[in-house]
Design a protein around this nucleic acid. Structure first.
Length: 945
RNA sequence: GCGGGGGUAGCCGAGCAUGGACAAAGGCGCAGGACUUAAGAUCCUGUUCCGUAGGGAUACGAGGGUUCAAAUCCCUCCCCCCGCACCA
């Protein structure tokens, strides 16, 4: 048999599909199916993990075609946002790490001599985007995806900008586009917002924004000036005994409104990015910063009761965390307790802790935790841990005591925010944002929290919107189903989202042109554009204004008038509108769970807001990600395989099969070379099975020559086919695939053992066409190849365009399958006996159950266990009846009528072949008295040496 | 912390929603055999323990409970993974 060249086969069929426009979708009679997968971001090559989602999407598209749907499966490219711009900037600056990475990326696709030139062009973001968009298109074609490529676009095209502007106008009209303050992570050095990608180790050690509460302590000798302490536990203010200042740090005075605030120099800088009214002046008249020591020993007034408390030195205070001023609650904060202990030892200073929280198991929590953990110095690293423990315990179990005024008797968890608000109301507290850890950007710039004063948001909080979102989700299907409830929660949780930035590629914000629409907010309803994009290309961009889209998408306005205004004739307008209305809604969006709480929820909410109900999406399916050899794939680990290499390294169909079979949607696919190899052998064996039937010119079996094993295999085949179609339709592609590859192959192997290789070749011929059709969504290239090889006259009849095979129900035969199971278990039992008794048989005697046993078997089959013996004894009063019924109960055999001796007589020859000896059926000869052990469906066996 | 998902044999991984045929599919690995000059591939057999007749014992994170019966239901505990936003 000739070795198949998979690569050639892939290319051949991809070419023919393209030449014959097999996947170009046009309006047709009958049912339609519009499937989308999120467009890829074109900052670099995709890897096999990304490929999983697109591949599954393609399988669904292909399956739906077989089901008779007119399928639209389009693709576009996402370019908007900051990363591509950042990459281009880095390359323009010549940052070696980035340049090196992109050299590697480009080398995946290009010969070495071209690489440098292409990299040089990458100083321009557009070139990066275009290069990878082109390559990813090629990758997708090479993966055999059944995409209608005429509808390809990217998100920086002016046509797209027009569409996004329209979207924002619709949202603005609904009153959900707003302006306000918002804290973000920010780099002073770069003068811009920074995200996870921009932060050093931001991907593995996330930086989040933490809200501290600042509390003002008035200096006793200066009524306009306050030391500003920051805390995460404002409710502990009732227990404050002193302030802490780090003598080694530098402090400055800043002017906030009419007050002077004293904070660390570092904090002053951060405050400058958070409070617009802030002015910085240096402390002391001689225009110098003050060392922390300047304040030591001064008195301040705590703001609740106005007690005077001292300012004391502490080394644990970090000038770069919070304000560099900390208030001390030694009863409940381990750091404070230990620092005071130090002072007591060194200076003899006695300050009594003020206990304000009652909690079971503690008297003075800070003291006890330190003693328990053996902490004695404020340099001890375990203080953090001790603080955590106390914080947690007190938060959930602690109750404020009588020292806390109106808040006494209430649990911390329930009252924390109220205390904070109360302090804010008294004008003694304010908000200060801090990063959850110290962080720098990848360029080394310090990351702080800045508060944007005029950030644009989408406000998802209006209840009308949430209600619509819930309703939309309620009417949708999700697979895996658990994500439906999860999505409802996400909708509730969704609040304000900034929707524009100052930087990045994208559409200008229509209401303030120096803002650019943020890239997730511009990717919410773009599926609608797929339906008409190929038609829009023939129109002048200027015509694509609000009225145009209102008409096409919402049916608002009049074609005749619009034609006059836009210079597009009314027929064209209607043609476009019709195309949209034909394809919409999006019947299925297939993606991966990381999109749930961002892209997908926006996708749903924006549809709910903008489109009428008939335009709402119908279903979402999600597949988990892919790992490799048990580990996450990542650039830094260097363990990614580019999608572009799949064909060369593995073959596309093998990859697709692996994606289909290795894991269900809800589980991670583990790409393991060992398993891939094993699957390759299976896959090759399957292909060979088909090839052999074709090459030898084996003929189909005629119905009148079918034997029992033939009927058995046909029954198995059509049962599995029926089952697999059901499962595929329910997106259980893995189960369908395992059924149609692994399990069927096992059946055929068994069949061949039962019959012969020759006959196997013939019967495969009977099944081949039906089998190829159901396999074609998963491994389309090889199916197409064999489909055509099988019948040379097929030419343009692609397997990809067939309809699902008819299930030949007549072949599905319980009896035939039961009979075969009966034989298999008989043979298994016999072999078991031979093994245990270590006998080489000269003859094997098989005794089927006598008729009375069958009668009782029938009579008691539906009775509960406890009644079985009683019933049986009424039918036949004999001790052997009891033994028999016990054996039946133990054996757990499902009732089924079989004529055992008839089967055995028929298969006698097969049994002889199997055991290589004589077989006696129901003989009188029974030297060891085995006969009595026979029960229905489980004959007694005697093996003679 | 909040929300979600898990812990199954040497490994990966089904099954658990509707408890019973579950010593637990399938794959990998390992061992033996057939084939081969050999290797690979393929096929067969085995892979918790005991057993010279198809059987028995112990097992599905740990510990309890419900039941005639639990990997499957209930409770408690331990451990692991994911998301928590402005980022594609």
């Amino acid at each position: 048999m000739a070795e198949l060249n998979f690569k050639e086969i892939e290319e051949k069929w991809q070419r023919r599909w393209e030449e014959n426009k097999v996947f170009d979708a046009e309006i047709e009679e009958g049912k339609k199916f519009f499937l989308t997968v999120p467009y890829p971001y074109t900052s670099g090559p995709l890897h096999i993990g990304h490929g999983r989602t697109y591949t599954i999407g393609d399988m669904i598209a292909r399956f739906k075609r077989l089901q008779g749907y007119n399928v639209l499966f389009p693709m576009a490219f996402h370019v908007t946002g900051t990363p591509i711009l950042a990459i281009a900037d880095s390359i323009a600056k010549g940052e070696e790490e980035v340049v090196e990475r992109y050299r590697d990326y480009v080398s995946i696709y290009e010969d070495e001599e071209k690489v440098e030139k292409i990299i040089n062009s990458f100083g321009n973001a557009e070139n990066v985007a275009d290069f990878f968009a082109d390559r990813i298109s090629e990758d997708f074609k090479r993966m055999g995806y059944s995409i209608d490529w005429r509808r390809k676009f990217n998100t920086t095209e002016s046509m797209y900008n027009k569409f996004i502007e329209w979207q924002f106008k619709k949202l603005y009209d609904k009153g959900v586009i707003k302006k306000g303050k918002y804290p973000i992570t920010y780099s002073i050095e770069d003068d811009s917002a920074v995200g996870e990608d921009d932060i050093e180790e931001g991907d593995i050690n996330k930086v989040s924004i933490i809200e501290h509460t600042t509390i003002k302590f008035k200096l006793a000798d200066d009524s306009e000036t306050y030391l500003i302490a920051a805390t995460l536990r404002p409710e502990t203010i009732f227990g404050v005994t002193n302030l802490w200042i780090n003598p080694a740090a530098r402090y400055v005075k800043v002017r906030v409104g009419k007050e002077n605030w004293i904070v660390s120099r570092e904090a002053a800088e951060k405050l400058g990015y958070q409070k617009e009214e802030l002015q910085i002046t240096n402390y002391k008249l001689q225009n110098e910063e003050a060392g922390g020591g300047f304040f030591i020993g001064k008195k301040v007034k705590e703001p609740v009761e106005g007690r005077e408390i001292p300012v004391l030195p502490a080394s644990f205070v970090d000038a770069d965390v919070g304000t560099g001023v900390v208030y001390s609650v030694p009863a409940h904060a381990p750091y404070d307790y230990i620092a005071l202990e130090d002072l007591r030892r060194e200076k003899g200073l006695e300050i009594a802790p003020i206990k304000i929280i009652d909690i079971e198991g503690y008297d003075l929590p800070a003291k006890e935790i330190c003693e328990r953990m053996g902490i004695e110095s404020q340099e001890d690293e375990r203080l953090d841990e001790a603080t955590q423990i106390i914080y947690k315990d007190e938060f959930y179990r602690g109750v404020l005591n009588e020292k806390c005024g109106d808040f006494a008797g209430i649990e911390i968890a329930a009252i924390k925010d109220e205390v904070k608000d109360w302090l804010k109301g008294k004008k003694v507290a304010d908000v200060f944002y801090e990063t959850s850890r110290k962080a720098v950007t990848r360029g080394g710039g310090k990351v702080i929290v800045a508060v944007l004063q005029d950030q644009w948001f989408i406000d998802y909080t209006p209840s009308w919107w949430k209600d619509m979102g819930h309703k939309l989700v309620e009417g949708m299907a999700f697979y895996p189903e658990k994500y439906k409830a999860y999505m409802q929660d996400i909708i509730d949780w969704l609040a304000l989202r900034p929707c524009a930035r100052k930087r990045g590629l994208g559409t200008r914000f229509p209401y303030e042109k120096d803002w650019i629409i943020e890239s997730l907010s511009d990717s919410t309803i773009y599926m609608a554009l797929y339906t008409i994009v190929h038609l829009l290309r023939q129109l002048p961009v200027d015509a694509l204004d609000e009225k145009f889209f209102d008409y096409v998408f919402l049916g608002i306005g009049d074609a005749g008038e619009l034609a006059k205004e836009t210079n597009i004739d009314a027929d064209t307008l209607n043609r476009i509108k019709e195309e949209f209305e034909y394809w919409y809604p999006n019947d299925l969006r297939h993606t991966a769970p990381p999109h749930l709480s961002n892209h997908l929820v926006f996708f749903l909410m924006h549809h709910a807001a903008i489109f009428p109900e008939r335009g709402w999406p119908r279903a979402i399916t999600l597949n988990e990600l892919m790992i490799r050899e048990g580990r996450k794939m990542s650039k830094s680990k260097g363990n990614v395989i580019p999608l572009a290499k799949v064909s060369e390294l593995y073959g596309v169909d093998l990859y697709r099969l692996y994606c289909a079979i290795n894991a269900d949607f809800g589980s991670v696919v583990n790409w393991r070379e060992q398993d891939v190899d094993a699957l390759r052998r299976r896959f090759n064996a399957l292909v060979e099975l088909f090839e052999q039937s074709i090459d030898t010119g084996a003929e189909e079996l005629r119905e009148d020559e079918l034997t029992h094993p033939d009927r058995w295999l046909l029954s198995k085949f059509y049962r599995k086919l029926r089952d697999s179609i059901e499962r595929f339709d329910a997106f259980k592609i893995r189960e369908a695939g395992i059924n149609m590859v692994f399990n069927l192959m096992n059946d055929i192997r068994y069949y061949e053992h039962r019959e012969s290789e020759e006959r196997r070749k013939r019967i495969v011929r009977n099944l081949m066409d039906d089998w190829l059709i159901i396999l074609s969504p998963i491994v389309p290239h090889i199916c197409e190849e064999i489909w055509h090889k099988n019948r040379a006259d097929r030419k343009l009849e692609f397997v990809s365009l067939q309809t699902l095979p008819e299930i030949k129900e007549g072949f599905i035969d319980d009896r035939v399958e039961r009979e075969e199971e009966y034989l298999v278990s008989l043979i298994g039992d016999t072999k078991e006996i031979m093994k245990i008794a270590r006998i080489k048989p000269s003859k094997i005697y098989i005794y089927t159950a006598e008729e009375w046993k069958w009668e009782i078997f029938r009579a008691i089959r539906d009775l509960p266990d406890k009644d079985k013996i009683k019933e049986a004894m009424q039918l036949r009063k004999d001790k052997s009846t009891v033994d028999f019924v016990k054996r039946v109960m133990k054996s757990n055999l499902a009732y089924f009528e079989l004529n055992e001796s008839e089967i055995l007589e028929r298969e006698k020859e097969y049994l002889m072949r199997e055991f290589g000896c004589e077989i006696g059926i129901n003989a009188e000869y029974d030297p060891k008295g085995k006969k009595k052990f026979a029960i229905p469906l489980k004959p007694a066996i005697y093996v003679e040496e």
